[in-house]
Nucleic acid binder design. Structure first.
Lengths: 244, 244
DNA sequence: CGTCTCCTTGAGGTTGGTCAAACCAGGTGG
DNA sequence: CCACCTGGTTTGACCAACCTCAAGGAGACG
């Protein structure tokens, strides 16, 4: 079933960015309408990725960047000896594949955590187009740079925070990004398992579970399976900032 | 003393990249000679940074990228509440400031760990030039992407390795980069303090000291103050890979 | 020779990991 | 409708790794 070729879909040929409500969050951010139109031409197709399927694997040749239209992904990095870690979670408007530009191969593996759809932007064309459109160039730079900044945040988290603080930082970060997309900033549904959260935070699943339990005991959050709601936003934020 | 303006130096006006022995490691990597020449024009000046001095501070407006000609830097990220962490160490041929492109302000603070000299590349000019020189564009992308990949490595290290393995990974990484620059791959002089190593690795100084001691006891390395030499490269490498 | 910074070493405590068992929600099939 | 299975999650007891606190050593510099 998972090997079935995706049947051609009507929307695969629709105009993209110009009518996309993620315009102001995604790569075309701040571009002039004509520029957006040319970017549209470049986006040959959309691709659907079902929950659990790979968008791309680590080591695969890098050919395109992917902009998430809808859905949710995780990226993981692995080593020969079997160590594996989640490096991030991506949602609508985020770009996937930036790490492949340098080496020409993907550095991470991208897996859909729910049924998703992405815009495929062949990188060679994108680079060519960017020569004509300095704004596009700048936007691309901004996205790469933002990825670096985000990674620095992750490094700081892993290097300096305790387990409960990491969890708080994780929740605060997710909520922030969700609220920018119009969702509540008080409640969310986790798209990933405890195990994946743990991998991202450098913790074991048992610790994740215990810390969620503790935060709940202290009435900072309420947890029901994958639904989390924040009861004391201020306290959660302070925890995430490293306050004792 | 540290506030003295640097006296004008002759070499501040010399042609740069074309005659630089870091050409094949640095931004001009793989560029055609004409392109290198135009890049040279752009590099208005060099800047010397003494040991302990800031190249730029976090939050400062981003105006230029810096290519390290000689010397050694650390970059640190900090938060209001005083947490601070080293995000990386940079040596000749490395680019500093990439994280500032997106937000328009530097995300990290760059401090020289020894007397250093950098090429200043005003970013606005660089971006303009890159429109004319697709190869330069590509090189810039490669560097940004490489930074992302490097950060992923750091994340993996912080998330999955034990203290001794982190230290091994740190040493292996440094040695690799040094050997690419013509230095020995068996021995090195640490440019940073134990404290800075610990900050980078997410460990306390005492743990760094103990782990260095342990690796020495097991005759994997020999340590004399800041000089480290590798006695069993293979074992060190395996440790760094996460082998038990 | 004193002082400063950086580093090492030891004793004891805390955090998070390991191992093992049980739980729970959602599906499947009788 | 219920028994059973499955994957994901929770919980407890125990332990190892790392941190904290405190003391002392070693080199550099005035």
């Amino acid at each position: 079933m998972s090997k079935n070729p995706e049947p051609l879909r009507l929307d695969a040929l629709q105009a993209a960015c110009a009518s996309c409500n993620l315009r102001e969050l995604c790569l075309p951010m701040g571009l002039a309408p004509e520029a957006v139109e040319r970017l549209d031409d470049l986006i040959g197709l959309r691709r659907r990725v079902r929950q659990g399927e790979l968008l791309f694997d680590a080591g695969a040749p890098f050919e395109a960047l992917f902009a998430i239209r809808s859905g949710f992904f995780k990226t993981t990095i692995g080593t020969e000896d079997g160590r594996e870690q989640v490096t991030g979670f991506q949602m609508s408007g985020d770009l996937l594949g930036l790490d492949g530009i340098g080496p020409g191969r993907h550095d991470v593996r991208a897996v859909a955590l729910e049924d998703s759809s992405v815009c495929v932007m062949p990188f060679a064309s994108l680079e060519r187009l960017a020569v004509d459109l300095p704004d596009l160039q700048r936007s691309l730079h901004r996205f790469m740079s933002r990825e670096i900044v985000r990674d620095h945040g992750t490094i700081l988290m892993l290097g300096t925070l305790r387990a409960d603080q990491r969890l708080a930082a994780f929740l605060v970060g997710l909520l922030q990004r969700l609220s920018r997309r119009g969702y509540s900033s008080q409640a969310l549904v986790l798209r990933m398992t405890r195990d994946e959260i743990g991998s991202y935070l450098g913790l074991k699943i048992e610790t994740v579970s215990r810390m969620l339990g503790r935060l709940q005991d202290e009435a900072v959050i309420a947890v029901h399976q994958r639904e989390v709601s924040v009861l004391q936003p201020e306290r959660l934020r302070r925890l995430a900032e490293g306050a004792d």
